[in-house]
Amino acid sequence: MANQRQTLTNERAYSRTDFTALRAFVQRVPTATIARLYFTEDEDGHEPTAAWVEAYLRRMEAVLVELALEHGSPVLADHLKASAKAHGSARLTAVSLKMV
């Protein structure tokens, strides 16, 4: 499997590296470390900042949670709804990320 982007919705596409970075984020690896390990500089030569990485991964997490609630298994949907009730928003854990 190459690191090719997978289109999840009409607008979003994520690579295997993106999913690996999200897994590290869910496991509470510091975003500065994630930026250094998984992201490269952009076309203009700018390195990704920890703040940019955190925002990107939070958006990715929100998209995946939304898709899981709409199309996922009832067990996963119930888990995410309970997480949203407890935390104010549904949060992925290492286990729920595997389920997604």
Rank of each mutant, 00 (worst) to 15 (best):
M1C: 13
A2N: 14
N3Y: 08
Q4I: 13
R5N: 15
T7Y: 09
T7G: 07
L8W: 09
N10Y: 05
N10A: 14
N10S: 11
E11C: 06
E11H: 14
R12S: 06
A13W: 02
S15T: 15
R16M: 03
T17A: 15
T17G: 04
D18Y: 13
F19G: 00
F19K: 04
F19R: 07
T20E: 14
T20V: 10
L22F: 04
A24W: 09
F25Y: 15
F25M: 10
Q27M: 09
Q27N: 09
R28K: 14
R28I: 11
R28N: 15
R28V: 14
V29S: 03
A32G: 06
I34Y: 01
A35T: 11
R36Y: 07
R36A: 09
Y38S: 02
Y38W: 08
F39E: 00
F39A: 00
T40N: 03
E41T: 13
E41F: 04
D42T: 09
E43L: 11
H46I: 05
E47F: 10
P48L: 05
A50Y: 10
A50I: 13
A50D: 15
A51Q: 06
W52K: 07
V53D: 13
V53K: 11
V53Q: 14
E54T: 11
A55K: 06
Y56F: 10
L57T: 07
L57A: 05
L57G: 05
L57S: 06
R58N: 05
R58T: 09
R59H: 08
M60G: 04
M60F: 03
M60L: 10
E61D: 06
E61R: 05
E61Y: 04
A62N: 10
V63E: 12
L64E: 00
V65S: 03
V65W: 01
E66R: 01
E66L: 00
L67A: 07
L67E: 10
L69Q: 01
L69I: 01
E70W: 00
E70V: 02
H71G: 09
H71T: 11
H71V: 08
G72F: 00
G72Y: 01
P74S: 12
L76R: 01
L76A: 02
L76S: 01
A77E: 01
H79A: 12
K81G: 03
A82C: 06
S83W: 12
H87S: 07
S89V: 10
A90G: 10
A90D: 02
L92S: 04
L92I: 02
T93R: 04
A94Q: 07
V95T: 14
S96A: 06
L97E: 03
